[in-house]
Structures are given as structure tokens and as C-alpha cells.
Simulated assay, not measured.
Amino acid sequence: MTLFGGLAGVAGVVAALRGTAERRISPYDLLLMTAATHKLARLIAKDAVTSPLRMPFTRYRETGGPAEVMEEPREEGQLRHAVGELVSCPFCLAVWVATGFSIGFLFAPRFTRVVASMLTAVAGSDYLRLIYASLQQSAEQQK
């Protein structure tokens, strides 16, 4: 919590000194940031591809949703356990990711918009794929 508070505080002070603290996030950017936050938090916390990054802090438990794994925090050491709790929980990570996007919109809005757009497109693609699979499964059950 100290790290998070310090990061947010330093970003706020720098934004005030640079005059970027007056920037507003548009409703469009907020929707973009919302979808991108959801996708990036899940990508970090649950994606099988990112499991090597979580490995020092988590243990594999079982498979989760499509291309996802369920992990639990390692018990050895308080810091390792705390980081494990954070990196295995998309809800916990969302606060950090949204803060990162907010800071990005303050200091590098164009770049942040591109990254958020890409993640939003991937999230949309994921949901379309899940809807397609569900419709396909329903059609097969009706046969």
C-alpha cells in the first residue's frame, strides 16, 4: 500500500508541476480504459502465457477458463505471499492497472490510447469468441 500511495502521490505532484493535472479523461477514454484494465488485469493474473512471470510468487492449482489457470499465492515469506495475492487476483490488479492507465493519460495520452485500444480490441475478441462458442454449443445441444 505504501508503494501504491507513493507512486500515485509522486505522479500527482509531477502532474501538478508540469501542468498536466488539469487534463480530463473523456467518457470515451474512460470506457477504453475500463475495457483495457479488465483485459490487462486478467492477462497478468490468469493467462497461461504469463504464468512464468507469476511463478516466483504463486503455485499452480488447476486450469481455469479458456487459456486461463488458477493459482494460489506461495506461503513462504510475507512479501512473496503478498505479491502472490496481488498477481493472482485480477480484481486486486485492476486498481494498479487503472492507476497506470490514469497516469498514462496524464503524461502520454496518445501512446496510452493506442495501448488501451489494442487491449480493448483483444478483450472484445475474447468475448466474441466466448459468445460464438456458447452459440455453437447451444446449436449442437438442440440437434
Rank of each mutant, 00 (worst) to 15 (best):
Met1Thr: 10
Leu135Lys: 05
Ala21Gly: 11
Ala21Val: 13
Val49Arg: 15
Met118Glu: 02
Arg59Thr: 10
Ala16Glu: 07
Arg80Ala: 08
Gln137Ala: 13
Pro66Asp: 07
Ala94Tyr: 01
Leu30Lys: 05
Met118Asn: 01
Arg24Gly: 08
Tyr127Met: 13
Asp29Ser: 14
Ala41Pro: 08
Gln78Ala: 13
Tyr60Glu: 01
Thr34Trp: 06
Val115Trp: 01
Gln136Val: 08
Leu3Ala: 14
Glu140His: 14
Tyr28Gln: 11
Lys39Ser: 05
Ala116Lys: 03
Phe111Met: 11
Trp96Arg: 00
Glu76Lys: 12
Pro27Gly: 08
Ser26Gly: 05
Glu85Lys: 11
Arg74Ala: 04
Pro27Phe: 14
Gly64His: 11
Val114Cys: 02
Leu79Cys: 00
Val14Asn: 01
Phe91Ile: 12
Ser117Val: 10
Arg61Gln: 08
Tyr132Gly: 02
Ser26Met: 03
Met55Ala: 12
Phe101Glu: 01
Gly64Leu: 09
Thr37Phe: 04
Pro27Val: 12
Ser138Lys: 10
Leu43Glu: 07
Pro27Gln: 11
Ala21Met: 06
Arg113Trp: 13
Pro52His: 07
Phe105Cys: 03
Ala45Tyr: 11
Phe101Pro: 03
Arg59Ile: 05
Tyr28His: 10
Ile103Gln: 00
Thr99Gln: 07
Ala8His: 02
Val122Gly: 00
Gly9Met: 07
Phe101Met: 03
Val13Glu: 10
Val10Thr: 15
Ala98Gly: 13
Gly64Gln: 09
Ala108Thr: 09
Gln142Asp: 08
Lys46Glu: 09
Glu62Trp: 00
Ser88Cys: 10
Leu86His: 03
Ser134Val: 01
Pro73Asn: 03
Ala11Tyr: 01
Phe111Ala: 14
Arg61Cys: 01
Leu86Pro: 05
Ala11Gly: 04
Thr50Ser: 12
Glu76Arg: 12
Cys92Asn: 06
Glu75His: 06
Thr58Val: 13
Met33Asn: 00
Arg61Pro: 01
Met33Lys: 02
Ala82Asn: 06
Ile25Leu: 15
Ser51Cys: 02
Ala121Ile: 15
Gln141His: 10
Lys143Thr: 07
Cys89Asp: 13
Val114Trp: 14
Leu79Ala: 13
Gln142Cys: 03
Trp96Thr: 05
Glu75Gly: 02
Gln142Pro: 00
Gly124Gln: 07
